[in-house]
Computed example of a mutant assay.
Amino acid sequence: REGCELKNWGWGSEVTGWVSFNSTNNYGGKTPGSNYGATLANFCQNAAPNAPGNLAVTDTSSANWSFNCVSPLQPAFSWTFSDPNTDDYQSAFQLQVDDNSDFSSPEYDSGSATTTSFTTSVPAGRLSYNTTYNWRVKTWDNRKTPLVSPWATGTPFATTAHSWPSPDFTFLPNSPSVGQDTLFRRDQDSDGDTFGTRCFDSGNNAVSCGNYYWTMEDSSPTMSETASSSIPVIVSFNSPGRKEINLKATDAEGFYCLKSRSTGTVTLPLPQYKEVLPR
């Protein structure tokens, strides 16, 4: 016997060779396609998985720029699966996230999610800022009648006080020529277009940012500006090709996010010409 498998050399009038039977299938009778068989007692009873281990959640602190700017309020969770029956693997999990420690009214409940993955994220719109959350996870094994593990509870995590800056901008023309003035705007224009840079206060209301900083590839001049600057940024590019533009917006608490865009292809200017009368 090895684990849930009974195996050894077998011989008889019709067969000689290595024979194995897996008792987890409760097999009895002849092996399909052969003239030999066996009846096995189920000496390897299924056991429920252990509680998930190595629980981890995305760092949601104010130092985590990539989380708070790219996927705010969508933390990722991970764990590991183990089972007394070492051949078993995870077939499903359930994750709950709740601001109550008794999980009486979860803000997010995945239900029984059929997957072998040990990671998942909370969808957008389920969690709130300035809140501490509890979370727990359990798993099912892969048997015909799956058994479920006990819940495992992770370390509580807190979301940041409010939204981080949301920088955005537009520029004209999209594909300037070398040396041509190009206008960059970070604010909503008079036509009410939706582009614009916003920061947020403690009540999560949109406010002006404390500081803005531009970086523009191969431009004249390389521009920076402060919140008091209301004049659009005007630069020209020194060489042809696509140029990367970055706008960094920082709020009153020092939290910042970046927005990057590329211009269309900057072209060489048309050659100057002068009309002359034929001789």
Rank of each mutant, 00 (worst) to 15 (best):
F81V: 09
C199N: 01
N142H: 02
S104T: 09
R186Q: 14
D168T: 07
L147C: 15
Q96M: 05
D201P: 00
F157Q: 06
F93R: 03
G125I: 00
P84C: 10
A113P: 08
D168Q: 12
F157G: 05
D189V: 01
Q90R: 07
T114P: 06
R143C: 12
Q90C: 12
S149K: 04
V122W: 07
V122F: 06
T80N: 08
T116H: 08
S175P: 10
A158L: 15
N134F: 08
N134H: 08
T197K: 00
S78R: 04
W151D: 12
S128N: 13
Y89L: 09
P176T: 00
S190D: 15
V148S: 09
F118D: 15
S82H: 06
S112A: 14
T160C: 07
T116K: 11
N134S: 11
A152P: 07
S202K: 11
F184E: 00
P84K: 12
S91E: 04
T120D: 12
S177W: 05
R136W: 10
D191P: 13
W135P: 00
T114E: 06
T153H: 09
D102N: 03
D189M: 02
N134T: 03
A158D: 12
Y129T: 04
P146G: 08
V97D: 03
T114W: 11
N100I: 12
T159K: 08
A152Y: 14
P146R: 02
A113N: 13
Q94V: 09
P123Y: 00
S175I: 12
G125K: 02
D109F: 14
F200L: 06
A124M: 02
S121F: 00
R126K: 15
P173H: 03
Q188L: 06
V122I: 07
N100R: 14
L95C: 04
L183C: 07
D87N: 05
N205R: 14
A113H: 13
F93E: 04
D99Y: 01
A113T: 14
S104P: 05
T80W: 04
S105T: 14
V178G: 05
T132Q: 04
